[in-house]
């Protein structure tokens, strides 16, 4: 677990980043969003959905190239669900993307039946996504914000009870 480095750029640079994000994710034009951390190559979106900032999480066949929390490595929905179930105690709950009191949620996206992206819900009900391996973290209002030609569509939500210490 860790914290990504906050984004500190000029207003002009911020506008350029926003324009680039809208170019990639046109749905963002219709909702509130903001890039919140620097572009980092030290973690990907799956890792960030698991609240990890120093690993690539992906079921790549070679463990030397990426971390995967379970032995089963396969680029299919069931494997991602099982990975988050075993490692982070999430359970699938259909397509209920709403903010539920007492629960944390993550959402899996697929394009052409293949997992592409995951986002995590914040306490505010908004969602946070790491853009690939290279890009920024962005907070977006709905799960639809990053749907499109790159990530496809949100297909399944998983939730776990929030543990308060």
């Amino acid at each position: 677990m860790g914290t990504p480095q906050p984004l500190t750029v000029s207003q002009l640079e911020l506008l350029q980043i926003r324009a680039q994000l809208i170019g990639w994710f046109p749905n963002l034009r219709h909702e509130h969003f903001e890039p919140v951390s620097t572009d980092s190559d030290e973690y990907n979106c799956i890792a960030w959905a698991a609240d990890v900032v120093d690993d690539y999480w992906w079921p790549h066949p070679n463990p030397a190239d990426s971390f995967w929390p379970i032995q089963w490595r396969s680029e299919e929905r069931a494997c991602f669900i099982e990975a988050f179930r075993q490692s982070r105690n999430y359970e699938p709950c259909g397509t209920d993307f709403s903010l539920e009191s007492g629960y944390e949620k993550v959402v899996l996206y697929e394009r052409n039946g293949t997992p592409t992206h995951m986002a995590r819900q914040l306490e505010s009900g908004r969602w946070v996504s790491k853009c690939g391996v290279w890009g920024w973290d962005i907070v977006h209002q709905s799960i639809h914000g990053v749907e499109g030609s790159d990530y496809g569509s949100a297909v399944v939500v998983m939730r776990r009870p929030i543990l308060r210490s």
Binding site: W58, S66, E75, T116, C131
Partner: peptide, 12 residues
């Protein structure tokens, strides 16, 4: 071409 991709498989 891989900027937005989290797929390590596809990237490599």
């Amino acid at each position: 071409e891989t900027f937005l991709s989290s797929s390590i498989t596809a990237n490599l």
